[in-house]
């Protein structure tokens, strides 16, 4: 690589060399990000870090209180409950959603005239996002006389108070998340499309069956995309807020009081911006560690074309 560049450099002027230099090109292409980061991101991030050591409440002057927010958090039972609830939610919803999304994306690779239609059918739920109408529908589905309870009644299981029983209150929220699996599915579908057909043809000639080619070709080729979906869904699951905010408001008895929801309430309802900032920095550390672990582990299971050197 280096050699090629230096022989190039002799031929063209130094300005051109500068422009075509890999470092220059790298920074030029990254320029939008750098501008955005320095201009609009770094200051808010640093100020939220600063606020986490103050008693800042909206509209009032912030005064330095050292580690007090962090110390108070350690003794806040509602905080620990929200950590517990959030972990439970992340650990169930993310794998379910990803498996489901991959499963559907695979099914949709079957070549029929209706595939496009089917894909739309499964994607529609994700398109309506977190609108009020949807949350209302969801509430209605799981209400005491809702469809789910009617079906359970017919199956002889009996009604469940979905929003009144602490043990099951998380389930409707998890199902709502899984139901809106569309963006992961689309990304999987695009990833599947990228896999060269020749790989499968070669495998077929070698006598590999469907299952074998799934594990030997599809999964490895898809692994960068799986990594991506895993990281993104984990991050966004930790930050889940809307579902609980509009459907359960964290109840009953804080059983669905997600971390992000409790943080939001501290920031905007109780107006304890400093306290909420401390919460968000604890969250940042948590997610960073988890993301890092996922990245570290990816060396063992992600097959990366561009890392072959």
């Amino acid at each position: 690589m280096k050699k090629v560049k230096s022989t190039d450099g002799k031929r063209i002027s130094s300005i051109k060399a500068l422009i075509y230099n890999e470092t220059t090109a790298g920074y030029l292409f990254a320029l939008p990000f750098i501008i955005g980061f320095l201009g609009f991101t770094i200051v808010p991030i640093l100020s939220s870090f600063y606020y986490s050591f103050t008693d800042y409440s909206l509209g009032n002057k912030a005064s330095w209180i050292g580690l007090n927010n962090y110390i108070t958090l350690m003794g806040d039972k509602r905080f620990w409950n929200s950590v517990y609830v959030t972990f439970k939610y992340v650990l169930t919803s993310v794998p379910l959603k990803l498996i489901f999304a991959l499963f559907i994306a695979m099914i949709m690779t079957r070549k029929t005239r209706l595939t496009g239609f089917y894909r739309s059918l499964y994607y529609v739920p994700s398109l309506i996002g977190g609108s009020i109408a949807v949350t209302l529908v969801w509430k209605e589905l799981f209400s005491r006389r809702g469809l789910i309870n009617q079906l359970l009644g017919m199956a002889g299981i009996g009604r469940v108070s979905w929003f009144g029983n602490q043990k099951v209150a998380l389930i409707p929220l998890i199902l709502l998340t899984v139901w809106q699996f569309g963006s992961s599915m689309i990304i999987f579908a695009a990833g599947l499309k990228q896999i060269p057909t020749t790989y499968y043809e070669a495998a077929k000639i070698d006598g590999a069956n469907r299952r074998k080619s799934f594990f030997k070709i599809t999964l490895p080729c898809l692994s960068p995309v799986i990594l991506y979906n895993l990281v993104m869904q984990t991050i966004s699951a930790f930050m889940t807020f809307t579902q609980a905010f509009v459907i359960t408001s964290g109840g009953p008895n804080d059983a669905t009081n997600f971390y992000a929801l409790y943080m939001y309430n501290n920031a905007f309802t109780y107006r304890k911006m400093g306290y909420a900032s401390a919460m968000s920095w604890i969250m940042l550390v948590f997610i960073s560690i988890i993301t890092l672990l996922i990245f570290k582990s990816s060396k063992y299971w992600v097959f990366n074309e561009s890392d072959k050197e």
């Binding site: 209302l136 509430k139 209400s143 005491r144 108070s161 979905w162 929003f163 009144g164 029983n165 209150a169 459907i247 359960t248 408001s249 109840g251 009953p252 008895n253």
Partner: peptide, 10 residues
């Protein structure tokens, strides 16, 4: 109404 039923009142 129990907390579940109350949650249904928007």
């Amino acid at each position: 109404p129990d907390p579940g039923a109350i949650a249904e009142i928007k």
